[in-house]
Deep mutational scan, measured.
Amino acid sequence: HFTSQQLQELEATFQRNRYPDMSTREEIAVWTNLTEARVRVWFKNRRAKWR
């Protein structure tokens, strides 16, 4: 589960860029205190939901 702060950060990034690269995902991981893998999976799932 994600905190509302984490989701806000993830959503804001998603609005700007639906396909963040590795370095962007790592930055998000640092800001949100999540692993890069969790961030990558979140984006994958979010893109699926967005379609």
Rank of each mutant, 00 (worst) to 15 (best):
H1Y: 12
F2E: 03
F2H: 03
T3Y: 04
T3G: 04
T3L: 04
S4L: 13
S4D: 11
S4K: 14
S4R: 14
Q5D: 10
Q5A: 12
Q5H: 12
Q6R: 03
Q6W: 05
L7E: 10
Q8Y: 11
E9C: 15
E9R: 15
E9W: 15
E9L: 15
L10D: 00
L10E: 00
E11H: 03
E11L: 05
A12L: 11
A12Q: 10
A12Y: 10
T13A: 15
T13W: 15
F14Q: 01
F14K: 02
Q15W: 08
Q15C: 10
Q15T: 09
R16G: 07
N17Q: 06
N17A: 05
N17P: 01
N17D: 07
R18L: 04
R18I: 05
R18H: 13
Y19T: 05
Y19D: 05
Y19C: 14
Y19K: 04
P20F: 03
D21R: 05
D21G: 07
D21F: 03
M22Q: 12
M22K: 15
M22G: 06
M22N: 06
S23C: 09
S23G: 09
S23K: 15
S23V: 12
S23N: 11
T24K: 08
T24Y: 07
T24R: 08
R25D: 02
R25M: 09
E26T: 12
E26D: 06
E26C: 14
E26Y: 11
E27G: 07
E27I: 12
E27D: 08
E27W: 10
E27A: 13
E27P: 01
I28K: 01
I28E: 01
I28H: 00
I28R: 01
A29K: 01
A29Q: 01
A29P: 02
A29M: 03
V30E: 13
W31P: 01
W31R: 15
W31A: 15
W31G: 09
T32N: 07
N33W: 05
N33Y: 06
N33L: 06
N33F: 06
N33V: 05
N33M: 07
L34A: 08
T35E: 06
T35D: 09
T35S: 10
T35Q: 04
E36K: 03
E36R: 02
E36W: 03
E36C: 05
E36Y: 02
A37Y: 13
A37K: 13
A37W: 13
A37M: 13
A37P: 11
R38K: 13
R38W: 12
V39W: 03
R40I: 04
R40G: 05
R40A: 08
R40N: 09
R40S: 06
V41L: 14
V41N: 13
V41K: 14
W42V: 00
W42S: 00
W42I: 01
W42N: 00
W42Y: 03
F43A: 00
F43M: 03
F43Q: 00
K44T: 08
K44Q: 12
K44M: 11
K44F: 08
K44A: 10
K44N: 07
N45D: 10
R46L: 01
R46Q: 06
R46N: 02
R46V: 02
R46W: 05
R47F: 05
A48H: 09
A48P: 00
A48Q: 10
K49Y: 09
K49A: 11
K49P: 05
K49E: 14
K49S: 09
K49L: 12
W50K: 06
W50A: 11
W50Q: 09
R51A: 11
R51K: 11
R51E: 12
R51Q: 10
R51W: 11
R51M: 11
